[in-house]
Design a protein around this nucleic acid. Sequence first.
RNA 1: GGAUCCGUAGCUCAGAUGGCUAGAGCGUUUCGUUGACAUCGAAAAGGUCAGAGGUUCGAGUCCUCUCGGGUCCACCA
Length: 710
Amino acid sequence: MDKRYQHESVEEKWYSFWEKNSFFTPNVDHGKKQFSIILPPPNANADLHLGHVMYTVEDILIRYHRMKGDASLWLPGADHAGFETQFVFEKKLQKSGKSRFDYDRDTLYKMIWDFVYENRGNMENQLRRLGFSLDWSRQVFTLDPEIIKIVHRTFKKLFDDGFLYRSNRLVNYCTRDGTGFSDLEVHYIERNDPLYYLKYGPFVLATTRPETKFGDTAVAVHPEDKRYQKWIGKEIEVEGLIGKFKLMVIADQAVDPKFGTGMVKVTPAHDMADFEMGQRHKLPMKQVIGFDGRLTKVAGPYKGLKVAPARQKVVEDLKARGLIDRINEKYVHSIGTCYKCGHIIEPLPLPQWYIKIRPLADNAVKIIKSKKIKFSPKRFEKIALQWLTNFRDWNISRQIVWGIRIPAWKCLDCKNEEWIVTDGTAAENCPHCRGKNLEQDPDTFDTWFSSGQWPFATLKVKNEKDYEFFYPTQVLETGYDILPWWVCRMIMLGLYITGKVPFKTVCLHGLVRDAKGQKMSKSKGNVINPLTMADMYGADALRMALIYGTAFGNDVPMSEDKIRGMRNFSNKLWNIGRFIKMNQDSFQSEKINIAKLSIEKTTQTEDKNILEELKTLTDDVTKSIEEFRFDKGADALYEFIWHNLADKYIEAVKQRLKNYDQKALAVLTCVFITSLKLLHPYMPFITEELNKQLSLKEEQPLIISPWPKI
RNA sequence: GGAUCCGUAGCUCAGAUGGCUAGAGCGUUUCGUUGACAUCGAAAAGGUCAGAGGUUCGAGUCCUCUCGGGUCCACCA
């Protein structure tokens, strides 16, 4: 054995050994308990980042249960990550001077498909590199034809059950990315924008968006506001930049009499609250801002200007005409931006498909409250409930090509507004006029609509028996940051489609941050590349560094120092092994049959002590995995192996070993091998290698050896 | 405005159901390498557990308030 642990030569060897022997592939065996986890699918086109190494937690659970003898399935997949991927691809196009508008839909789709397929293998090999014991034989992709079928069927069922509707309400639209979003993708930021007090006929009212005044279709006051009582229901004449126009004064509860002058301009096409007021008062909509982010012809001479310059120009002209009463320059409010590109989100009227979320969410709340789904750490239950209680209808339409096309058609001949929804097969003719001139909705699904069906979809595609045996899955483990995006939606859709919970326990880890607790980002330059770290210090060290020392569920501060520390631990393990091996060899050269060594009836105090401590360790590690406190197990193992076993016990028995004390070698070997078993879920490679090196007889590989019992 | 997490040694963090002189890693200081490991060992320094009040025989641990951070949510025109 080398003086130092050389992870390079060990890790690859063992992964292919495990994979070739199908240890990752459980059979459907009703005689066994099942333990199943669906891997949160990484983006197919992207490399893994440090956060993905938190999958270690799932690997710990899977390896532990596999050793316990359960039929343990960890099912890998890849996500097409619709908008995210198209965004990345468009950037790439940009670099070569092209844009997505240079290609027709099918060509663009094909180009992205090729792009993703080129990169997909990277991600998969990186998962292997980190030692994750995933069942590759059951691997799935969100754009596999069978998955698409399931997603289509879900859409149709929602439609048939009345949980789906088409609505021309305001959608969160990013004019730069050219697509609408759900509420979750809008990122609100605090910003200073002047609050303009504009003269509106006999009144003054406050707005931050003077450029939308061309879209006003009323002014509103609070119904009980004394100042405006006699005007309610009357029409006022307003002098504007493009001539005089008339507006009705309406009364609505939504108006806050304390804000501004207590009067608000109503622009139903560009403000969520105004839109709702418009609905209540049957106001017309005038769209001032187009989907290209420029003012429309409604704005007369201002047509074609982008929003920001338009505002400037409008303010300038209003000032010149004496139509601005005053300006509050210090006004601060929160404003919606695109979570991806940071551009301001425009609420724009666009027909989209919405899921009626209340019945689904209410059911999810009921299930969680009845403890059919548990959360770990517990505090996340409250957060999930808060989300589920506040969800509003979910817009699942996206104006992008990279995704699953929505299976809905419209007849172009009979002008019927009715949609023909299928389970994916192309609609052939209009049920009203029998016409064949049908047009499919050009939109695709929100990625989260398909990944929200992941637990049952992945188990149904290959083999119905998998679904029967492995569903519901036992644990869903992911970062707490996607609790509303993903976890809540899986619960809602899982319950709706299968009538069962998709998983029994939700286990949420914290975010990996830098050594100072700051978010890692390219712009800050504090990103740690997991593959580089694995190459330098070993995958085991990297895995352990992420688990050790931080209470599970809290954010994990990470530094190269910490990984190096765990590399040192690997080396410590290695040298304990080397010490044992050295003694085994010297015993053998004295013709002692080390295969027959036994720990029975040892009389030495130090032997009894270490064996007693090993019992405690076994108990601690088992409990900490069962309770999802992986950090406690890691701490206990580190402490025991380094300080109890190496520093104290080994030092205590060195003299006995020199004298060929067989009990000493027996106890030492037994304690160490047992520790390796307990450590194997955390650090699979080095433990497997050491077990092989030290085994006295032909032993099973650790990956399938039985979990130690007290 | 609401929710939630956090403030413990120089740094990063552990410290279920309150109970022996408050712990670890890294860092610092001193000493130690001829047969496991310098990616090591032995020892040491270093904390009014953010602050105040309360419950208790006893509080880092429970309650209230204050201060200081982080994160998330909300249709602030």
